[in-house]
Nucleic acid binder design. Structure first.
Lengths: 194, 194
DNA sequence: GTCTATAGCGCGATAGAC
DNA sequence: GTCTATCGCGCTATAGAC
């Protein structure tokens, strides 16, 4: 392994992401990352000069990863209903991660958006737009195939689905956990079904 | 006015609530409150010895206030559909507050729940339960009157509505604001309509 | 690239005068 | 009940040796 292959960088990003998804960006510190990775705080600053810089890198990485998974789902041969279920499963997989229940990275950062920089705000906007656009495509596809009974504007329904998933993954961590998340998303599928 | 009528206490609570609804509990500090109220940090500690104590007091106050409004709606002579709309309007009123867009206090604290104490966790649970129970009652009432087309479990639908509203109020602050919030909630009403 | 050491600041919280 | 002053700590960030 070369010394510049980015393994340490990746470990730092992984630890930071885990912490933010559980505690929030304002609840995560370089010391927490230091403890998790087994590296000194100064070394983290070598890779990510400022906390804003670290968060922005994280947001980009998560967005690319998430959109790639979403695009794979969209381009698969599954039915629109199955595609939506697989999209929902992306959120559920996040929630049921090994280290305890985590929310979506963008859900956490979105909640704290007023205390972050303009760069982060732009990235959050981009994530929301990307999700809503792709969901709109998916919903329209399902309406054509008569598997979704879409009353009203598909864009509004897409925004509803996205808000619901982001909200549910935040809410259920306090009480019902994965079990309640599934109850809510099953109900969503029922409401959308033709 | 007596010196123990709690005016200062109320001012502190109001400022703290505003800050948490915009920045989150971890993004709010005693110094911020001090600046907002025009009182020294030490004086805040006189009224609320610890930050946890302040947050717990806030959560209780907000919960009582919100449930009172919700109960008033439930006990009114409005139709179930109108009642649900008025409930949604409680969230919209929070969002369009004068000092910039605010989320629900419990939405913000819920996102940061893993970095708060067990007392706060219990209060968050209580708020979620209270909302879901009342919403369930409202939805069943509407189903009887055939104004809601409830497929599936009313409890699951109630949890869906609550998660959606908490999620939407967090999400729309990044981009669409009140306009998008209204678009989403109108779509919800369409989906639930018989 | 990682380390030790530390600067500089803001935090929550306390002591004690008034 | 509010103030000034301060403690002790954790934070982000930097300097410089290795």
């Amino acid at each position: 392994m070369s010394e510049s292959d980015g393994v340490t960088k990746t470990k730092i990003l992984d630890a930071a992401q885990d912490l933010i998804q559980r505690l929030g960006a304002n609840g995560m510190s370089y010391q927490d990352i230091s403890d998790a990775v087994g590296i000194r705080k100064a070394s983290i600053h070598h890779h990510f000069p400022t906390k804003e810089n670290l968060i922005e890198t994280l947001l980009d990485r998560y967005c690319e990863y998430f959109f790639r998974l979403f695009d794979n789902i969209l381009q698969s041969t599954a039915s629109p209903k199955e595609k939506l279920q697989k999209y929902i499963d992306l959120f559920e997989a996040t929630l049921r991660s090994e280290k305890g229940e985590k929310a979506c990275l963008y859900g956490m950062v979105g909640a704290e958006i007023a205390s972050l920089g303009l760069e982060s705000l732009a990235k959050v906007k981009h994530f929301h737009e990307g999700n809503e656009e792709r969901l709109t495509t998916l919903l329209i596809e399902g309406r054509k195939g008569r598997v979704f009974n879409l009353k009203g504007d598909p864009k509004a329904t897409a925004a509803l689905v996205f808000s619901l998933l982001e909200g549910a993954i935040l809410i259920v961590r306090a009480k019902g956990g994965v079990r309640q998340f599934r109850q809510i998303t099953e109900q969503l599928m029922i409401l959308l079904a033709a």
